[in-house]
Amino acid sequence: MAFEESPSLNLYKDGLPSRPPDPSRKRRRVWAVIIGLAILSMGLAFFNMARDGTLAILAGTGAATGMVYDDQGNPIVAEISVFGTILSTQSDQTGRFQLEGIPAGRQVVVVAYRNIGREYKVNVTAGQTTDMGEARFQADDFMNGWSQSGEGTP
C-alpha cells in the first residue's frame, strides 16, 4: 500500500465506523438446514440401499445347495438363479446344484426348467451353505403353451 493511501485519523473524526451487520447468525441457520438435509439424504440413501439389496452385499455372501427332480423322481438339469441378481448355475446330471456368492439375507431362488420356474424363499447366512432340499416339478406345471417350446429347454 502506498503511503498516500494509508488510513489517517481524518477518517475517524466522527468516531469509529459502525460495525457491519453480523452475518454469522443467518449463516448458522443456513448451515443448520444444510446439515439437516445432509442427514436426511443419508438416511433416505441408507433406506434405499437396504431395500434394493446393496447393503446385503456388505453383509457378506453365502451359498445354497439342493436337488431338482421331476414328478417321477428323475433328476433334472435345470437352471437355478437368484432373483434380482445375475447369479445363476445349472444342476448336474444327478439333479444336484450349488450356487455360491449369494448375498446374505432373505433371497428368492428360481429353479427353471422348460420355460417354467418355481420360486423358493431361502435365508442365506454369510459364509455358510444353506440346504434348500428338493425342488420338484409337477407334470401339471408343463400343461402350458409356454413350456411346449422345446428351444428353451436347458
Binding site: S81, V110, N115, I116, G117, R118, E119, W146
Partner: peptide, 8 residues
C-alpha cells in the same frame, strides 16, 4: 415371469 420363465 422371471428371467424369461413363467413362475408356477
Amino acid at each position: 415371469w422371471v428371467n424369461g420363465v413363467q413362475i408356477k
